[in-house]
Computed example of a mutant assay.
Amino acid sequence: MRHIVAVQAGVTADEYDREPTAAELDGIEREMSVVLAEVDLLDVYIATLDRTPTELDSRRIRRARRRVLAARRALLNQSDGTSLFGGAA
């Protein structure tokens, strides 16, 4: 049985098969504080999924939201004015 495959598959790399560039890694590193703050917010939401949020849970959610906003603000303040988030603006 013969398998039919693309002749150039071993030579040409797909766009998604490559390693990230240095610029992409720098961008990830620059946005890491926002990513970690969003993960913390998601953790708080997950912890309250199966129950009615208590007052303490509500405080944790508000605190986590404020951390996300502060991290985004800090990132935007250090950026060069380029759009960092996928908003419609």
Rank of each mutant, 00 (worst) to 15 (best):
M1C: 14
P53K: 01
G81N: 01
I4N: 14
P20M: 00
G10Q: 05
V7R: 00
N77P: 11
R30I: 07
R72A: 04
D57M: 02
E38L: 08
A88V: 15
P53E: 05
T21N: 00
E31N: 15
R63Q: 13
A74H: 08
L49N: 12
N77C: 09
R63P: 12
T48L: 01
R65Q: 05
F85A: 05
V35F: 09
A13F: 12
P20Y: 05
S58N: 13
A47H: 06
D26P: 10
G86W: 15
R65A: 10
L41N: 06
T52C: 01
T21Y: 02
L36V: 02
V39A: 15
P53G: 00
D14E: 13
L25R: 12
E38D: 12
D80L: 02
D40C: 09
A37L: 03
L41D: 01
Y16S: 10
T12D: 15
A89V: 08
R18Q: 11
R65S: 12
A6Q: 14
T21D: 03
V44L: 01
S58H: 13
A13C: 10
Y16P: 03
S58D: 10
L75N: 02
R30V: 01
E55G: 11
V44D: 00
E29P: 04
Q78T: 08
A9G: 05
S83D: 15
A6L: 14
T12R: 13
A89H: 11
T21P: 04
R2T: 13
D50V: 03
R65V: 03
M1V: 07
F85P: 06
R67W: 03
R67H: 04
D43I: 07
T82P: 00
R60S: 06
D26E: 15
T48Q: 01
R18T: 11
Q8G: 01
P53S: 04
A64C: 02
A23V: 12
I4P: 15
S58E: 13
V7F: 13
A47K: 05
D80H: 08
R62S: 07
S83I: 15
E55Y: 14
R2S: 11
L41Q: 06
D43Q: 10
E19I: 02
L69N: 12
I61A: 12
A64L: 07
R59F: 13
A6E: 13
D57S: 08
R72L: 05
V5W: 12
